[in-house]
Design a protein around this nucleic acid. Structure first.
Lengths: 111, 111
DNA sequence: TCAACAGTTCATGAGTAATTGAATAATGGA
DNA sequence: TCCATTATTCAATTACTCATGAACTGTTGA
């Protein structure tokens, strides 16, 4: 991942609706969710949802596939992982302090 | 970290100049760097630099302290760590696939 | 083929972010 | 005190992001 792609991914995540969107898609895993279901769950208009989903898709954070009338969106774990790696390794020069700091939170005693 | 703070941090990182800024500040550690040195290193005007540094500071990603005529900026490892934790744990529901995916890159065989 | 359904795209307008250069602090030395 | 240094703030401009609703595309079943 280069800086341009990282920037696209960061910009994609830097939005309330899109952060909610990712949070909804994660539990659905590879199976994904139809756009309509997501729209209803989040209480967001279809066009607005489409706008935000394509932002996430353009940034490589979600995938889309058509199934009959529905378009199914699923989170792209690799894309999110690559972004986190970029932040930790490229941007933060693999600083051990930062990695330790966020590894700690992920386990038990979140500070 | 709540979503509003995560959003502020993501927005702060979602910018070319500010990403470069973080990359410059990391090696300097707690000691930090004077604004003027950073401006020169990045080839950015003083006012523009000040603008971007205060964006990072507002998001809790860097700290600033005055030392005589200089203002010294240093990266806030805890702030960046908290953001990464938020992405991995809150937003991605601690999905093991994503954490594995970015832990792998940080070690040896980055895919 | 026609109508209903599921999503996307487009046009508009409102709000926000970024760049530039000039003006304004704040500090330290002569 | 006066001046040079260092950095921030302000005003103006430009560009971008987002929300909204209408129009459009693609798909299915009657």
């Amino acid at each position: 991942m280069d800086q341009a792609k990282a920037l696209a991914a960061l910009s994609a995540l830097a939005n309330d609706t899109r952060l909610d969107l990712v949070r909804r898609l994660i539990p659905a895993g590879e199976k994904g969710l139809p756009a309509g279901d997501i729209a209803e769950a989040l209480g967001v208009s279809a066009s607005r949802l489409s706008f935000h989903l394509s932002a996430l898709q353009g940034a490589g954070l979600v995938t889309a596939r058509r199934e009959s009338r529905n378009v199914i969106y699923a989170v792209n774990r690799g894309g999110i992982g690559a972004l986190v790696s970029y932040i930790l390794d490229d941007c933060c020069c693999a600083d051990p302090g930062i990695r330790a700091c966020c590894a700690a939170q992920g386990q038990d005693h979140g500070h």
